[in-house]
Design a protein around this nucleic acid. Structure first.
Lengths: 351, 351
DNA sequence: TTGTACGCGTTATCAG
DNA sequence: CTGATAACGCGTACAA
């Protein structure tokens, strides 16, 4: 391994001078500068990250602004990922503080976002599930010079440093493929949004669009009919009535695509009604979904790797800000296709 | 962060003594020993890995005994993974030497395996694709006290330190599920082995077994007929004849499962013959396979994450031997289901 | 503009 | 049995 000292000796200067050249701090005579740079390249000098970090014992404060897992199970996994990354990075002086908001309450988001600012972190990781309310804070952070990373939902308006998550459009496209593969002869398929403010959730609209487009591009002479539905109150009695009506109006439904993690509510309905021939595709490996995946009521789940989103979100920020690595500003995680038969490996996966 | 120095001060001893207690080297008075251990626990002391590695500037030699990518494209990816891990680990003093053998020639394997031993590495990573020939070397290494890790193919006989790869049985099971999902009405399905010495390839037999078992467990009153075939010489003219005969004998074939990375040879055949209604499932994201996946001739590929196998293989050894971490002796990588629509994310994935 | 010396946390050596 | 001290490679304050 080549050290600063080696370069210094070869150039006939001291380590201090080499350091100044390499970090562009302090004034150095131009000819020495050139010579040092040349030798560094020639010897292919690679700084020793360990020693660098060891001496640089400052702490880096990162804020994570995330929804409360207690309100919606889905957010458990990102939190776990964030905490895993945090644990691995403590030895490098990275400290992660969580700011938890209620995913059903935009005001709660605003409150927590305000608190983040007060703490003056060097960076922020946020799941911007409230499109409208997020924009003002992005602007603030941008002006304050605090870089931020987005996960789960991409909002490009204020150029986040990093986005970690899925390509929503493509995942809808994939869902369509899986349903069509199982029913090449044609039929009626439903796209269902459950318990969401659709107008404020651009990523769900993208999923729907991808779903439509696949069928439009691949009908191949067969009749494929796509019906959209926006359902609410999945925990109430009225939910069953909504589905009853939907299936009455579309008696020949072959498959249903649920655009978020609530596929289990439809599965519960199908099971209660004793309907087994309708294929069902949803998102996310949550306990309730897995139960129906294992029973066969849900055929496929598309995994958003939520744990990985949290993990790479924090790690990506650290890579850029602490280790000064250049990383890709957009990291699309794979669209994992999960069925009963390969589920087990994804659950136990480290990331 | 709690340092050795902190413990030393609190215990009224020197750092040297604390070090001796923590590493169980040298003699220390029993009462001081207890006191130091107690304080260390109380303060939740975590050694600073950076500093430890910095001072410990010995080099760790790891040997990688792998098939030649020039002979079979499949092995390109594991090599890339190995080299990636090697690059990341050089700063920790890890040096990886590759020993390349011809995957079609067991003698070449034996030659390289013999050379490995001469180099006296601290550990060995090997893809033991020759079952019979591998055993003798495992025994030698075991006796010499050199730990080894297996990837791609699991051979538990001599207890490798780590196995990284797939659950072959389960991947066959999954392939069956995918074919059956597309044809719930029943039909004939082929399991095809191509260009292999089947008797010496236990993992392929496991895949076949999983494939059978799925259909046996899920026939649900429908008629599913499974036919096995062992084909060779995929590059010759005779290959077409073998497939011709097979399809003549089984005119109602609905799907074909190729147990290794050679699905493209069957795809080429189907394309040439103008057959489009037969579903095809294979393994591995190699250039030739991808071409037919994108055309739709191949419906699904099961990804073995070969790059990840190489990467985690080296990293796993380093984790245990260099960083002294405890890691799981078996790391089953996910059975990724790849189709044209989600392919792109797996190709660009870092691992 | 340049060189020197100290400190980061840990390990190893040597003297007591 | 124990304590002091040098060294790993780098960054930085301070002296020249």
């Amino acid at each position: 391994m080549v050290r600063i000292k080696d370069i210094a000796e070869k150039a006939g200067v001291s380590t201090g001078t080499v350091d100044r050249v390499l970090h562009e701090r302090g004034r150095v005579a131009e000819d020495v500068r050139q010579k040092v740079l040349e030798i560094a390249k020639e010897l292919n000098y690679q700084p020793n990250l360990l020693a660098r970090t060891l001496v640089n014992n400052r702490t880096y404060d990162i804020a994570a602004l995330i929804p409360d897992p207690a309100q919606d199970d889905y957010w458990q996994a990102p939190q776990t990922g964030i905490e895993k990354a945090a644990a691995e990075l403590t030895q490098y002086g990275v400290r992660v503080t969580q700011f938890i908001f209620d995913p059903l309450n935009a005001n709660s988001f605003k409150e927590q976002a305000a608190e983040v600012r007060a703490r003056q972190p060097i960076a922020i990781l946020v799941a911007p599930i409230f499109y409208r309310e997020s924009l003002a804070y992005f602007k603030q952070w941008k002006e304050a010079g605090i870089p931020f990373a987005l996960f789960n939902t991409h909002i490009p308006d204020y150029e986040p440093l990093i986005y970690i998550g899925q390509d929503s459009y493509q995942s809808g496209y994939l869902a369509a493929k899986l349903l069509q593969y199982g029913h090449p002869e044609g039929g009626t398929f439903l796209v269902v949004h459950i318990d969401v403010d659709l107008a404020n959730s651009s990523h769900l609209i993208n999923k729907e669009q991808g779903f439509y487009d696949y069928f439009h591009q691949h009908s191949a002479g067969k009749m494929f009919k796509i019906v959209q539905a926006d359902l609410g109150n999945s925990t109430s009695e009225a939910f069953q009535d909504q589905l009853d009506k939907l299936l009455l109006q579309n008696p020949e439904v072959k498959g249903i695509f649920v655009t978020n993690s609530k596929a289990h509510t439809v599965a519960q309905y199908l099971q209660t009604k004793g309907i087994s021939q309708i294929r069902l595709i949803g998102y996310d490996l949550m306990e309730k979904n897995l139960e129906f995946l294992n029973k066969g009521t849900i055929d496929f789940l598309i995994n958003q790797n939520p744990k990985g989103q949290g993990y790479w979100g924090i790690y990506g920020l650290a890579d850029q800000l602490v280790f000064k690595k250049k990383t890709n500003p957009i990291k699309y995680l794979p669209l994992d296709i999960i069925t009963k038969e390969n589920l087990h490996y994804y659950i136990e996966a480290d990331l």
